[in-house]
């Protein structure tokens, strides 16, 4: 009777351990999958950042303004000089 009880307890523990191990493997594999996804997203961000950089260069803006026939103002607005130009 006692032996049967021990065997049952040991079996339960073994099943629990196997289950935990299984969960752990699943989680680890999920972490790995997320790492790969994270890297892919980072790559996409780097791509987008550079594309944005290309689009916002003065040259690109000027060419777009010309294509869209926008009126670029060349007037000198009356505004005080920037504040950092104080005298020593």
């Amino acid at each position: 009777m006692r032996l049967a009880f021990i065997i049952i307890i040991l079996t339960v523990i073994a099943v629990g351990l196997v289950h935990l191990r299984r969960r752990e493997v699943i989680v680890r594999s999920e972490i790995q999958r997320l790492q790969v996804r994270h890297l892919a997203l980072r790559r996409e961000i780097w791509d987008r950042q550079l594309e944005l950089g290309h689009l916002t260069t003065p040259r690109a803006i000027r060419s777009r303004a010309e294509t869209m026939a926008l009126n670029m103002s060349n007037e000198v607005p009356a505004r005080p000089a920037p504040p950092e130009q104080g005298r020593w």
Partner: peptide
């Protein structure tokens, strides 16, 4: 830049 920073060198 005129209003904001402009990317001069970046990596992908």
């Amino acid at each position: 830049g005129r209003y904001d920073s402009v990317l001069l060198a970046g990596s992908r």
